[in-house]
């Protein structure tokens, strides 16, 4: 269990629409390129909680293995570019984790704790 883990995932072009419907977060910064640019974003951006869900999924194949997960969101995630999520073990079921897209850290200083 205390082994490094790494997963690569590429959000497709429509992932923010599916996540908006599934989560109820319809903030237009995630759905509308023109709107996003009007508030000085590069275009529509990924939901931070979608990216965090990718980190959570990387923790274990068992969705119930996670005891806690804490992350900081930094870089802005965009669709259609690969994200690499890495877990480094600290021992006793604890991991440092991050999510990186194009050398841009979307999630940094992540800390995951698995149930022992």
């Amino acid at each position: 269990m205390d082994e490094p883990r790494s997963v690569k995932v590429t959000p497709d072009r429509y992932v923010t629409y599916r996540y908006a419907g599934a989560s109820g977060d319809f903030n237009p910064i995630h759905l509308d390129d023109e709107f996003a640019r009007s508030v000085e974003l590069p275009g529509k951006i990924l939901h931070g909680l979608w990216t965090m869900a990718q980190v959570a999924r990387t923790a274990s194949d068992d969705p119930l293995a996670l005891k806690s997960l804490s992350v900081q969101f930094r870089g802005i995630g965009v669709p259609e570019k690969e994200i690499e999520i890495t877990f480094k073990p600290r021992g006793d079921g604890e991991f440092d984790c991050e999510a990186v897209q194009d050398s841009n850290k979307l999630v940094r200083r992540g800390r995951a704790v698995l149930k022992l």
């Binding site: 903030n27 910064i29 508030v39 909680l49 005891k67 806690s68 997960l69 900081q72 969101f73 802005i76």
Partner: peptide, 17 residues
């Protein structure tokens, strides 16, 4: 202002499924 809001960090601790 919701349009200027971005998620900065998140912590969750889980209990019962």
């Amino acid at each position: 202002n919701f349009a200027r809001l971005v998620h900065g960090g998140q912590e969750f601790t889980w209990g019962e499924p």
